[in-house]
Amino acid sequence: MIERIQILCFAASYGVALALEISRLGFRSAVRGVLLWGFSVAGFLAQTLYLWHRTRLADGPLSSPFDWYLLAAWLLVLAYLVLAYWRPASAIGLFLLPLVLGLIVVAALLADRTPLAVNRATRAWGALHGGFLLFGTVAVFIGFATGVMYLVHAYRLKHKLPQRRGLQLPSLEWLERVNSRAISLAIVMLLLGVISGAVLNTVRPELPWSDPIVVSSLVTVAWLVIVTLFVVVYRPARQGRKVAYLTVASFLFLVFSLGAALVLNTKHAGLPEQPTDPARAARSAPLEFERRGAA
């Protein structure tokens, strides 16, 4: 049964959950909350099973860009479920679910990339590198979502606009707190990710230091270091709209960095090849594997 779970299953569940979140803006419904939870949790469970099944076939949850993006989406859904549980009246899903779907789409686009090279000596550093970057990325995404929420909410309060039905947001203080914590976590995680990546590449040199992914990651981390220094030196940047702007800008830098893997010629995630080993074929072409599994 697990083999029959496809990306489309959980993507569609999240899509329906997002449509339900959007419908909050239009009308009230007594059953929407139950449906929303039902679809979100169903999608989350399906994705969990899918990822678990992938770990049995592939070299690990972080062994390919495809798995990495799906795992990032999974963590983001987990964050969404936790936040939605604590703040059921807030339209948090309206801001987080599009990011989840975006990550799943990018994963699907990268499905034909070859898995990252696995070698016993580099396995530990590779897992650390992937893990740090994964948590850093999820933190930036959460920071971005809460940052946008903060800006929307601050604009509404500043201009004394009535709270629109279905678009209830947490308080500015809460958004700012989550926002600044997310960006702090992202800075630490991404920095450690880049450092572990550098170690990895020193132990087993596979990538040129001028690889677009390496360069764009360094630019992102440099930006985050600048943000940190800015916040330390300039006190007003520690709160309010400035934090929100900084997290939105950090997200754009991260998107630029992640986008480099999609459009630029990089060796970080190998370009499509024709594998001969069936297990490797499953790792490198999950969509093809899904099609066969479903058949």
């Binding site: 909410h153 309060l157 709270q163 947001l169 308080s171 500015l172 203080e173």
Partner: peptide, 10 residues
Amino acid sequence: AEFAAQVFEQ
């Protein structure tokens, strides 16, 4: 309840 609570959490 409707304005201050939207700015401050506590």
